[in-house]
Design a protein around this nucleic acid. Structure first.
Lengths: 356, 356
DNA sequence: CGTTAGCACTCTCACCCATCGAGTGCTAAC
DNA sequence: GTTAGCACTCGATGGGTGAGAGTGCTAACG
């Protein structure tokens, strides 16, 4: 039969597309391979099961569907999901009621990006019944907003560093100076640093610090603290992802495909890998668009049974973060895409407001 | 047979105790019900399997062992574990090499309790191959150490509050004053608050703030910020547990008894319940001693398949936290107890050092 | 009188096999 | 091109069976 030759994922006639869509939507809800009869029963296809069978066979030839065994129904392949995702240009937007609810929630929490990204993850988890992921908006280069020093004892101080981007860093500084270092001195040091280092990047701060006079006790301490600050900033700049907050991993556990836990355990281990998450998030932040990674499209084998829907948020010049959803490959992509789009858009608004 | 009468968990002759111990230790390592033959083979009991069988039957009558079915070996009941735990007064202490390694790890991180309790959880997870739990050392009453204010825009400032106990709180303060509020003003406000509120508790701060002069613009802003501070302190004081950090839940997933994931999912859900963790941690912090909660001894049904080994750390008058381990009921209690004891002791040292 | 060898008994587990049913793929008719 | 009909395939289900592990009991032993 000539038409059974495997052909590239090319133009599919509308009816085939409709049936592919039906298979996917049915499979997403039932988690069972779907047969030709179930399709004609539940979807108004206007053709008989035999015709559907022919088309299912074609879709399988095209690599969009697969067959666990001869006498089972069809289930989508990763390529099938991919085709489906590409075909839904207008992902179902979130119903206005839910949009309002989410806006309200965000209105409740502190006005700080710190809280927002956590809430975003939680919200996404709840709405999609999958795991929500979010990273804080991290700038390409950090800027100093504020320095504060608190005396711990004569030899040690606690350094509190606020970045323009909202992050707060805390560190201990040991001061093995001969000078007595009391809180009054530290106040002068902090004042000096705040004056000279406001809005400075690591590089700028380093240059400024070099000009301090080591003969003056206050400036000497300031220099020492400043060195510590520069180190913190450099660490911060170097890290691809500062932190990935996740919520609702339990939701994913509930999916029948993860009933025996070893698969999911692999996913968890992969999620613990900072480098992997870093590059994933980095690629999304760079692209500037929502990204769907389906099953085996994931670089890591442990993630071959899950899919990701990720979107960047923030302002390209300033700070960028990523929010998204992790769920079983068999997830409702339109819903996930719609939800992630809305939440990332909302975060954009909030970040804009913060920087306005 | 008279001796088969179920008797209270009373004095057990030494040989019976040895066999109970052997059964538990064998079961802990193999995760399989253990038979009389395996016992005489692997443990130098000096008696035949028939004798062992008699004793096993007695132990079962006493409720210390159980029998999945007639032709299976014995496995410990919760009561059996309890008896075993009570009998090991001198839990195996951690080998000196590991002690040194852990000390070294703690030397590597920042000198702040913030990092310590996280590291404690991670360390415990690694050493016991179970989940490590830790809460930060939380004082009964929080004291203000330092206040800092950063201008966000004319109407808003970011408040940074450092507590004597090491915690840092951040909050946004809206300033709908008619005064122009720039960073210079905020600096004066912060200086004023630092001067008057140093070491103050919520109640003390409230009293001080009441005496501020509302006619003076700086004092008015200071009062407003102060109110926010008092609210933060009260929230902090009211919370039973600030945060429970856990690490290594993956280790628990690997145990064969959690191969099908629903049991473990229940445990996870129970762990998400703040109130439950709060009272658990509270009871341990109050008692002042290490506490072992075995299986069904847990108040919540979801936790009936896991055990906890928890110990308080900190200084009763000042700040108290809890560290511990969560693992399957079938866990090595001597090892867990030894490890938790060591880590809590180490944290005690560190906290003492911090407050010295 | 405690301990031990011996042995019948019980119960699970793994395996096999037959049955059932869902769903396919093909053919022939429309 | 579509559809009805039908043989075929393959997993799931359930009963039956043999092996093996481990017990509980009895009777002999020191």
């Amino acid at each position: 039969m000539a038409r059974r030759i495997r052909r590239p994922l090319g133009p599919l006639d509308l009816r085939s597309q409709a049936i592919l869509r039906a298979v996917i939507e049915e499979y997403v809800t039932t988690a069972q391979p779907v047969g030709s009869l179930a399709l004609v029963e539940r979807y108004a296809l206007g053709v008989s099961s035999a015709t559907v069978r022919n088309i299912l066979a074609e879709l399988e030839m095209a690599g969009l569907l697969s067959h666990p065994h001869t006498s089972a129904g069809r289930m989508p392949t990763d390529a099938g999901y991919r085709f489906y995702v590409e075909s839904i240009v207008d992902a179902s937007p979130l119903p206005p009621v839910e949009q309002l609810m989410i806006r309200h929630q965000f209105g409740q929490v502190e006005f700080a990006s710190e809280h927002w990204f956590r809430l975003a993850a939680t919200t996404l988890a709840g709405l999609t019944r999958s795991a929500g992921l979010a990273t804080p908006a991290k700038p390409a280069v950090a800027h100093i907003r504020r320095v504060d020093l608190v005396a711990v004892n004569e030899r040690m101080a606690s350094l509190i560093l606020v970045l323009r981007e909202g992050a707060i860093k805390q560190a201990a500084v040991t001061l093995d100076e001969t000078d007595a270092v009391d809180q009054a001195t530290l106040n002068r040091v902090a004042a000096m640093l705040n004056e000279h280092l406001l809005e400075a990047t690591a590089t700028a701060a380093e240059a400024t610090l070099a000009r301090f006079d080591r003969a003056d006790p206050v400036q000497r301490v300031a220099q020492r603290v400043g060195d510590r600050i520069v180190r913190i900033l450099r660490d911060y700049d170097a890290a691809a992802v500062e932190e990935v907050f996740s919520d609702g991993l339990l939701n994913v556990m509930e999916a029948p495909e993860f009933a025996q836990s070893d698969k999911l355990r692999q996913v968890f281990t992969a999620l613990e890998n900072r480098a992997y998450l870093g590059e994933l998030v980095g690629s999304v932040a760079g692209s500037g668009r929502i990204r769907v990674v389906i099953g085996a499209e994931n670089a890591r084998a442990e993630m071959h049974d899950v899919s990701l829907v990720l979107a960047p948020y923030g302002r390209p010049g300033r700070a960028l973060g990523v929010v998204g959803v992790l769920g079983p490959t068999r997830m409702s992509y339109p819903h996930a895409i719609g939800t992630v789009t809305f939440v990332s858009g909302l975060l954009n608004e909030l970040v804009d407001h913060l920087y306005a």
